[in-house]
Write a protein that binds this DNA or RNA. Structure first.
Length: 269
DNA sequence: ATGGTTGGTCGCCAA
């Protein structure tokens, strides 16, 4: 008899690619550069039939996609076989959107998450965003055991506190930073999850993971930390590092244009 | 700060 597969070291990357078709050369380069065990993608923007499975399998990864036309879309890539796949979750107030895919990879529960953007505080999408987080938190609490290894990784579209904002005064009252949004992330973490990026960085500003395409925001340092990895204690207590691959956000870093999000590389053992 | 930019699609909408 053998127990569940346990890797000595696990490297997980989460990345909002803003179109997996546009980003495919950079994604393949990222797999080669970081050699991750697991990758969580968001904003793939393709239906499953159009997902580039062949190119990804050719470099040694299995892939599971939950995608739709034009918008949203999530995926999990892994060296090991992803099992127990869940696409979407019951009670999602945006059931037409593809925002969540879950899989077990080498004994770790992995969830790729694309939280509702919300547009602006006075938009109907804002109330949808809050309701989505409420429903998502119920599902996570029902499905997972905090004693087991679990990572929720993705673009949550919320900067958890002012350290995650380049200019908190400028952003006050804006989407991504409002107290109700932050309360939702806190409620999710109250299930027994740690914010690995903050745990690794300590009490400092950043590191940011997203910069608006406009106004040279990346060059000027106008960023937010909205791409998060939230994990239960079996992972959090084994954390080695969390690094933002800022190079990937640069126009010159690879073939084609960059995503507006940088990949986040999480390692534990 | 949001007069910018990008992607999917082919009109604009979403971010």
């Amino acid at each position: 008899m053998v127990g569940p597969v346990r890797l000595l070291v696990v490297r997980l990357v989460t990345w909002n690619v803003n179109s997996v078709k546009q980003r495919l050369p950079r994604l393949l380069a990222l797999l080669d550069r970081h050699d991750p065990d697991v990758v969580c993608l968001q904003e793939t923007k393709v239906v499953d039939d159009d997902f580039p499975f062949e190119e990804i399998e050719r470099v040694g990864y299995r892939a599971r996609s939950f995608g739709q036309r034009s918008y949203n879309g999530v995926a999990i890539l892994a060296r090991a076989e992803p099992i127990e796949i869940a696409r979407g979750f019951p009670g999602d107030p945006t059931p037409e959107a593809c925002r969540v895919i879950a899989a077990d990879v080498a004994g770790v529960h992995v969830v790729s998450v694309y939280g509702v953007n919300g547009k602006a505080l006075d938009s109907p999408a804002y109330e949808t965003k809050l309701a989505w987080f409420d429903a998502f938190t119920v599902w996570v609490g029902d499905r997972f055991d905090p004693a087991e290894p679990l990572v929720l990784a993705g673009d949550f579209n919320v900067a958890p506190d002012d350290r995650d904002v380049h200019d908190p005064e400028l952003w006050r009252g804006k989407i991504h930073v409002s107290q109700p949004e932050r309360d939702r992330v806190a409620a999710l973490m109250d299930l027994g999850l740690s914010d690995l990026g903050r745990q690794a960085a300590g009490d400092v500003t950043g590191p940011f993971t997203w910069w608006d395409y406009r106004m040279g925001a990346f060059h000027r340092g106008w960023g937010l930390r909205i791409d998060l990895a939230l994990a239960t204690d079996p992972v959090a207590s084994a954390l080695i590092s969390v690094e933002v691959d800022r190079e990937e956000r640069k126009p010159t870093a690879g073939e084609g244009k960059p995503s507006d999000h940088a990949p986040v590389v999480v390692t534990w053992a």
